[in-house]
Design a protein around this nucleic acid. Sequence first.
DNA 1: GGCGCTTCTGCAATCGTTTGCATAGAATAG
DNA 2: CTATTCTATGCAAACGATTGCAGAAGCGCC
Lengths: 349, 349
Amino acid sequence: MGMPRKRITIEDVARAAGVHASTVSRALNPQRQALVTGAVAARVAAAARRLGYRPDPVAAGLRTRRSSTIGVLVPDIANPLFPPILRGIEAALGDAGYTAIIANTDNDPQRASDALERLAARRADGIILATASRRDSLLERCRKLGLPVVLVNRSIDGGSVSAVVTDDEAGAALAVRHLALLGHRAIGHVAGPRRLSTGAQRRRGFVAALRAIGAGTQPPPIAEAETYEIEAGARAAAALLATNPGITAIVAANDLLALGCYDEAKRLGLACPRDISITGFNDMPFADRFDPPLTTVRIPHRAMGAEAARLLLAEIENPRSPKRAIELQPELVVRGSTARPRAGPPPAR
Amino acid sequence: MGMPRKRITIEDVARAAGVHASTVSRALNPQRQALVTGAVAARVAAAARRLGYRPDPVAAGLRTRRSSTIGVLVPDIANPLFPPILRGIEAALGDAGYTAIIANTDNDPQRASDALERLAARRADGIILATASRRDSLLERCRKLGLPVVLVNRSIDGGSVSAVVTDDEAGAALAVRHLALLGHRAIGHVAGPRRLSTGAQRRRGFVAALRAIGAGTQPPPIAEAETYEIEAGARAAAALLATNPGITAIVAANDLLALGCYDEAKRLGLACPRDISITGFNDMPFADRFDPPLTTVRIPHRAMGAEAARLLLAEIENPRSPKRAIELQPELVVRGSTARPRAGPPPAR
DNA sequence: GGCGCTTCTGCAATCGTTTGCATAGAATAG
DNA sequence: CTATTCTATGCAAACGATTGCAGAAGCGCC
């Protein structure tokens, strides 16, 4: 009781059960249980439990080159969009006996690349990428490492890898149509970064929908934010409003950008939704708490994460299984940031 | 180029450099560089770099029983309070060559315990607990496992383990004094769970401060929420207001509970801050975006995380170093959820 | 009763490092 | 110039599992 007891190894269990270590290994591995007699299996299990044996995953991993571990790369853990996705991933992974290792990249490709190397070195069995840009060198790296990957939320150009994303075009269209129905015609877009699939697709959906309601212009009223951050959204909104003064509504490419639009509107003395309507995208947690509560496009965060995890697990099982791209349907949730446009022109400054 | 190249081991480097593997190991380890001639060290380094050698942490870990990995247990990753803490942890850890492994426990002791076992099995070098209850069995378990621990945000009774927390009593007092200064006397408290140090300490600070401003009553107007969640806050607020109808201000034990108070106030037809003032605690991200913007007690999230990481690293270095309890000072941030109490009585329903 | 088949278990190599110990040669002392 | 101490390296044994291979029973079958 005094000594810090030595770790109990498979060898100890073998001795206690009167069998060889290799037999213990087989008896304790559900995959290979069939190879040993029922009686022996029971004896081993009993001994293991009696001694409190806990298999050592790092020793096992050294031999098997597997770790029951999945790396998850997230661009920004502080963005409330991601926790629900992680929850979904963890749930699906846990069911299968895997553990997620979350790595935060802070939108920094270098950090992302470092994290990937670390995960690979620790023998992650697969990677879920929430950080992908449309042409992402990380994927090439994963291929080289023979590391299964699936993308979540953001996709890449050319479907050479499995992904589960939202139908971003449809989502943007939902927002545009909602605004059109309210009576808006002069609708602008604060776009996300073009190098991200979400930025590109939502923009595309916006343009198409605007044309569809017969309000398309050349060029369309769009300003692109450099990042998905509040400040970038404010800057883009400023640019958009400067070049398109008549605008009565803004479709923002995500909720954080929408928040930036709020800020810029306030700065200009425009009340939302009275003077200007604003929509977001993602329905991130707390979007309903903003002032005004944000009308936004909801995506099934949790399901997205879970689905991605399942896809990855399937690919780990069978590395030559075909790549799949799953597109989940978004849904509009109307709150307080959108309203009919004012009858008259916006107040003169 | 075609074959999936085999992993490059220390043995390969040894051959290339014309030395023994053990020499390579020494040459590549900064701690033991001194044991090796400068010339050899250079030769080895060159060979390693030329071959693109990446040491295998799992093999090394098997031998050394260390992993350069720290487990972080978080009660709820979806609570925006935690991401900034994690950021701080990751920053401090990264500087020292360690990696954080984040585990989400969903406030479930069972999941927490499972996560701890997994982390221990994977040879985490230490644990940062953001989940601690005042009497937490996880700590006993860590002690048994010989696993260094430090607590962050929440502490335990009796200082047998290092911790970095906020001065919660002072924080609560800040809120009370602010309200008193505005003219409130009938101030209630929506407390956090008593089994958590934050719940207990903030309550304690509330009671003391209330007495200090000469508004103490017996019993003090307090309702305890079972968890730190919005709904629990709403329920507690309902209970508080039911038993203490005269209340003009609520000090909530955290921001989520404050949000619950918002909800309950609205349900009762009370406008915040006109009819009732509400304060939060934590100044979580987006607290400034709520409707109304939340007056709250700011705690230095990031610094807290960083400090905890440094403490842990120190304890890993020297396991017999004395336990330290660091208390960071909070700061009041006044926003729109507090105002002078109305002259007359609150509207009759 | 001998033969071939299964079925179960043991043997030993392996995964990629680290490190205590031994040793060869160099450096220093006497 | 010998005796002694260092220093730099090599050797080989861990760390704790998994698994291909081989051998020993056990079995049925002719």
